[in-house]
Write a protein that binds this DNA or RNA. Structure first.
Length: 466
RNA sequence: GGUCCCGUAGCUCAGCUGGAUAGAGCAACUGACUUCUAAUCAGUAGGUCACAGGUUCGAAUCCUGUCGGGAUCACCA
């Protein structure tokens, strides 16, 4: 099916973008901050997808038609239920698609599409427009924007061209039935089909074209594909092909593979589909944030529009932080109930540390803080804070090097935690003396600054009050 | 069966290139708001870091194996 590919690496397909699909938010802020020069790649920040998990299929035949042995390990009952739930979901999806049109994979479909058959193309575009509308709604709600989309229709021709050229140079080979393949067995990968026998492109052909197009458009030396780990093999093959094609950026291709997000087994209810709708979830966390905010009356004095903005920031912080704090590679259990929490190891907790600083700063006039250097000795909480603040640059570098935004999220949480303790234990405005007051004000400003920047890298905004 | 990922408190997760009594949050229990915002703080309880070997002065961390969970090996995307 058609896929949209964002040039800095976020990639998705309509398969996962159906009404059952979920939301994600790549954060481009970190990428911008890290970009050493305009030609360098933007990295990707974390994003996550809330999904029902991959849909397994029961077919055990390999491409070559040989039977694959059955798994020796038996599945436990819970897994059987999960698999049953998934396959029933798969059937629902398929039946919907098939009731509209002969779906991808059915005979004659791809040729009709690539040949530009008006009816097929119209149907295709209609289906896709529904998907993209759904995307738009959710992305907008999450504050996510993309610089550029690549569509399959933009890229498959280039992919096919490349295959034709590679055919001449012997990288690919054609079978008698007309299908085109590449042999990657010496790279411990299998043989891979790149063109069907009817000459139409397959999934990977389009990714070949897309990579070239992105390089052509932006000249990046590195491309990061943020795609679930179920596609690890696909990208191994893709990158190997690009190397053999001699593409100059081939060494800079990187698959940031993240683990699937799954729901707690207890929530795997029924045939309704074991999914969480991103829009519903967002509405729920907003409701939670509003309730909590109203109880506190801290922002009661603000105009209603500003109050709503604060509530939105809190809600988004809760949701985003909840997903970002987990290492991308790890499969994570997504409990919708917990994702709505506003206390503990959460986005709002970090925001609250920042808000406390702002609250203190609002109470002072611009004043001379030069006495700060005379403050000594530092107490344990102050030393702890200073130490943590100084770690910030290293944490950012590590996060970039490891493609791991969760490092930033965890750092922010720890810094916020240290500040909350400090704030509770020591008075700032009523410090023991002028030096201590000045010092703590500066320290607070530094912490707030770091927290704001850190969270900004994660695509999370700070409110001034909450 | 081949390849790859994962296994740390009841639950969700941190623990960087090996370093001292393995840390948070949630859930449970106990305390702290006439004082800069209690979306907070302090405390109690909770772990044979899946298991077994190996390397090392030293292993949650590195190596091997076993067990358990997951992904993938489509002329689907």
């Amino acid at each position: 099916m058609r896929q949209g590919t964002m040039w800095f690496g976020f990639r998705s397909s309509t398969t996962g973008a159906s009404p059952f699909a979920k939301a994600c938010w790549p954060g481009k802020n970190l990428a911008r901050a890290l970009r050493p020069n305009p030609k360098a790649p933007r990295a990707i920040i974390l994003w996550a997808i809330i999904t029902c998990g991959s849909i397994k299929n029961s077919k055990r035949n390999t491409a070559n038609g040989r039977k694959r042995p059955k798994r020796s390990r038996s599945l436990n009952p819970e897994n059987k239920m999960a698999k049953a739930a998934r396959s029933s979901l798969k059937r629902i999806k398929t039946s919907i698609l098939m009731s509209i049109a002969p779906g991808p994979g059915s005979p004659g479909y791809a040729p009709a599409l690539e040949a530009g058959d008006p009816e097929t193309v119209a149907l295709w575009e209609q289906m896709n427009s529904w998907v993209y509308q759904g995307f738009d709604t959710t992305y907008q709600a999450l504050g996510v924007a993309f610089d550029k989309f690549y569509f399959e229709s933009d890229t498959y021709l280039l992919g096919k061209d490349t295959v034709e050229k590679g055919l001449q140079s012997g990288i690919f080979y054609r079978l008698d039935d007309g299908s085109v393949w590449i042999d990657l067995e010496d790279a411990k990968l299998d043989k891979k089909l790149v063109l069907r026998k009817d000459g139409t492109s397959v999934y990977i052909t389009q990714d070949i074209g897309t990579a070239q197009l992105r390089y052509r458009d932006f000249g990046v030396e590195k491309m990061v594909y943020v795609v679930a780990d179920e596609q690890n093999y696909h990208f191994q093959v893709l990158f190997e092909i690009m190397k053999r094609l001699g593409e100059p950026y081939a060494e800079g291709l990187f698959h940031l593979s993240y683990g699937m997000v799954e729901l707690p087994t207890g929530r795997m209810k029924s045939r309704e589909g074991t999914v969480v709708d991103a829009d519903d979830l967002l509405a729920e966390v907003v409701r939670e944030a509003r309730e909590n905010t109203m109880e506190r009356e801290n922002i009661a004095g603000l105009p209603e529009a500003e109050q709503e903005e604060v509530i939105r920031k809190i809600a988004l912080a809760a949701l985003k932080f909840f997903l970002i704090k987990v290492h991308p590679k790890k499969r994570m259990i997504f409990d919708p109930k917990e994702s709505v929490d506003l206390q503990g190891q959460t986005g709002p907790y970090v925001q609250n540390a920042y808000v406390r600083v702002q609250s203190v700063l609002r109470k002072i006039e611009s004043e001379d803080l030069s006495a700060a250097s005379a403050h000594e000795p530092l107490n344990a909480d102050e030393r702890d804070l200073i130490g943590q603040v100084y770690q910030f640059p290293g944490i950012i570098q590590e996060a970039a090097r490891e493609y791991d935004p969760s490092a930033i999220a965890n750092y922010c949480f720890n810094l916020a935690k240290a500040y909350h303790r400090f704030y509770h234990e020591h008075s700032i405005l009523r410090a023991e003396n002028e030096a201590a007051r000045a010092f703590r004000l500066q320290l607070s400003m530094a912490v707030a600054h770091v927290l704001r920047n850190g969270m900004d890298l994660l695509g999370i905004d700070m409110p001034e009050r909450m």
